[in-house]
Design a protein around this nucleic acid. Structure first.
Length: 195
DNA sequence: CGACTTTGACCGGCGC
DNA sequence: GCGCCGGTCAAAGTCG
């Protein structure tokens, strides 16, 4: 509609120029975009600053494809940006990190190797399509995921991950590649590092 | 029978 | 204070 998603103050826009589309195998993806969701808890995020900073962490995970033979998938994990401008009340709330990406896909829900339980469905403003809410069904894991079709172009699916899994993928995840640009303490990436 | 989905209701945050 | 909106809950239904 009126709002280009790349201008959405809640997201940092990433094109897929340097990114290999992980879902290309079994879906009709022709585009994949990532958004690093900035902490919207208060300050209006100066997101442009985040783009230039090396915040991205990309891990490639290969799983056994138990749901119809998907060969591999790649998880993009982006450290949530921290606004430490004024060193003033340093983020007491634990948001974990949030990743959103937009893919062109025929299917709504992508199999990322984790097991999700649907807990809500909602029609949201500026989008004629419903938004679906999922939780990770693993015990003790509170990662959430939102899935919605792009209101402008229903060929695109916007998926937002909220939080970090504290366990491995139930379908044999092998993290065979990982690029760590930098790290902070509030993200439990040790589950990734062990590989 | 257990796990999951569906769906309306409820709640809290935020803008006016 | 009020209304809108997004997110979550929970009961009922469905499926394997």
């Amino acid at each position: 509609m009126d709002m280009d998603i790349s201008q959405n103050p809640s997201f940092t826009y990433f094109s897929d120029e340097n990114f290999i589309n992980p879902f290309m195998d079994n879906n009709d993806f022709s585009n994949l975009m990532f958004f690093d969701v900035v902490d919207e808890g208060g300050n209006s995020g100066l997101i442009e600053q985040e783009i230039s900073s090396p915040t991205s962490i990309i891990s490639s995970e290969t799983f056994t494809g138990e749901s119809g033979g998907s060969g591999s998938a790649t998880t993009l994990i982006k450290k949530e940006s921290r606004r430490n401008t004024g060193s003033k009340e340093s983020e007491t709330k634990e948001m974990g990190h949030r990743v959103a990406f937009r893919t062109r896909s025929k299917i709504d829900v992508m199999d990322d190797g984790f097991k999700w339980r649907k807990y809500g469905k909602k029609s949201v403003k500026n989008n004629i399509n419903k938004r679906n809410y999922y939780k990770c069904s693993s015990e003790g894991c509170s990662v959430k995921k939102r899935v919605e079709r792009d209101g402008e172009d229903a060929a695109y699916v916007i998926t937002t991950y909220d939080g970090v899994h504290n366990h491995e993928s139930p379908s044999h995840v092998y993290y065979n590649e990982m690029v760590l640009s930098y790290d902070h303490d509030n993200w439990n990436q040790h589950s990734l590092l062990q590989c």
